[in-house]
Amino acid sequence: MTEIRWHSRAGQGAVTGAKGLGSVVATTGKQVQAYALYGSAKRGAAMNAYNRIDDEPITNQETKMFPDFVFVIDPALAFSDDITKNDKPDTQYIITTHLSKEDLIAQIPALQDKADRTYVVDCMQISLDTIGRAMPNTPILGAFMKISKMYELDFFLENMKKVLAKFPQKIIDANMDAITRAYNEVK
């Protein structure tokens, strides 16, 4: 079982991202869960989204999880949210930030001893450059593919295209660029 917790603000697309990841995973015969927990369902309020991925049907309906991966898709939440909550010794962190990994870790006490499993990528800038607005939810998945090695990039892109099929071609292409850039830029 792979468990992922997203830290996001309502409106940044974490739920869409979690469902998108779920849809790709489901096409490969795996089982998924994608859900969210809102503190307050207002745009801009901090929230969590979650994924569970397994080969067997998933019956755990508990909300809390001990994540294998934590995605922080809003730069400010790395500082204000309890991102290491229910941490495991091998939990990996993928954090959206314009800072270098060293500078980021230096400012977040909870990450001090986790440098070897913390990764940074500027999904905000990447999405602004490619999609044209701050939509960090798809690029973070590119970074995740690199770190987790869950699927080859090309395979993931192909399947993600199908998930996004209802959007105009321009938006699909922009998302593919964003995923690819994050895949290449995550450190």
């Binding site: 927990l37 503190g39 307050s40 901090a46 969590n48 508990e62 909300t63 809390k64 999880m65 949210d81 309890d82 909550k85 229910n86």
Partner: peptide, 11 residues
């Protein structure tokens, strides 16, 4: 303790 249903953020 141990309950995610109401995390402390709002509080």
């Amino acid at each position: 303790k141990g309950l995610e249903g109401n995390d402390n953020r709002g509080a």
